[in-house]
């Protein structure tokens, strides 16, 4: 069973914040869902390999070549929440 403080720790890792009641709800829901996942415990997978990709081919590689891109200008202008000159700006990192 996941306790509220575990949920709080996970939230911190995920950079999310919740109110107390939200934490309670999440703990309940997560317990319900994780409980549902317990049915996997019944399967013996000790000799089974993990599948992390749906395709079974070697990863492709590209030539070491530069392709110019100029997306930064419009990104800074149209999308950056805050910027100064050519920099993205964030609250001071202490």
């Amino acid at each position: 069973m996941i306790q509220k403080d575990t949920v709080a720790t996970i939230a911190k890792l995920a950079r999310l914040e919740f109110t107390e009641p939200e934490l309670m709800t999440f703990a309940d829901q997560m317990n319900q869902i994780l409980g549902f996942m317990e049915q996997l415990d019944g399967l013996d997978t000790s000799k089974i390999e993990a599948t992390s990709h749906a395709v079974d081919i070697p990863g492709p590689m590209r030539e070491d070549r530069v392709v110019e891109s100029n997306v930064i200008e419009s990104l800074l202008k149209e999308n950056a929440p805050d910027h100064e000159d050519n920099f993205f700006r964030v609250p001071k990192v202490l």
């Binding site: 990104l75 999308n79 950056a80 929440p81 805050d82 993205f88 964030v90 609250p91 001071k92 202490l94």
Partner: peptide, 19 residues
Amino acid sequence: GVRFGYRSPNAKNLTEMYQ
């Protein structure tokens, strides 16, 4: 909230900016 997308106007420091 660093490069694009929503950044909370309520954030007073870096941790709050994220959260």
